[in-house]
């Protein structure tokens, strides 16, 4: 298993101008790594639906690479989206799944069949252009350039270490520095969309 922050640091070297969005609390690490804030966008507010929003963004911006860092708990709530993505097959969509096998933000309870799901296998068989699975950092680092240079939709499943939170929600430190509307406004300004 890999630290999520190491995943983001490895990815950042191959990001280029890609638009990046994240799902789940582990995505908070991306804001500490990103060097292009105006192309980081927050889309989520309903669990499981960030995947669909990122898919819609990729469809609407076919000339831009759109990268989603998804979480397995969210994806399981909306697994059919994999077929929706495969059906339209956006060549600019890069779907990374950070799989910690549990609901880390609610205390670490396992997701259903958490250790037994081959997400990359699901994505490949449902029709993604390619699918990959990594559980060690070195393999991920060695393949990221080729992955980001390939044509989508690409699925990349990565086993990460859980960062379990047990504090009551009201006592947790807020880590997101920008709200959804602010990130969308900044992205639209960057892209010249009014």
């Amino acid at each position: 298993m890999i630290d999520a922050k190491d995943v983001f640091e490895a990815f950042a070297r191959h990001r280029g101008d890609a638009i990046v969005t994240t799902s789940g609390t582990v995505g908070r690490h991306w804001q500490d790594v990103s060097d292009n804030e105006s192309r980081d966008v927050s889309l989520g507010s309903s669990m499981g639906q960030t995947t669909s929003a990122a898919f819609g963004l990729a469809l609407g911006l076919p000339e831009e690479k759109v990268v989603l860092f998804d979480s397995e708990g969210a994806l399981l709530m909306n697994l059919g989206v994999l077929a929706s993505v495969a059906g339209k097959a956006p060549r600019n969509f890069y779907h990374f799944l950070l799989d910690n096998e549990c609901y880390a933000t609610t205390g670490g309870q396992p997701v259903p069949n958490g250790t037994g799901i081959n997400y990359a296998g699901v994505a490949e068989n449902i029709g993604y252009a390619s699918a990959h699975h990594f559980d060690n950092l070195e393999d991920l680092v060695n393949n990221l350039e080729a992955i980001m240079g390939s044509s989508g939709p690409v699925f990349v499943s990565i086993k990460i270490k859980p960062e379990v939170e047990n504090l009551p929600v009201g006592m947790r430190k807020r880590t997101r520095r920008r709200g959804r509307a602010e990130t969308i406004d900044a992205l639209q300004a960057e892209l010249g969309i009014s």
Binding site: L43, A53, G56, N78, K88
Partner: peptide, 21 residues
């Protein structure tokens, strides 16, 4: 854009809206 369940509708639409569609 065919989707697999209706809940994907508003969220896919959000992404398209952000893209100016």
């Amino acid at each position: 854009v065919p989707v697999s369940r209706e809940g994907e509708g508003p969220s896919t639409a959000l992404g398209l809206n952000v893209a100016g569609k």
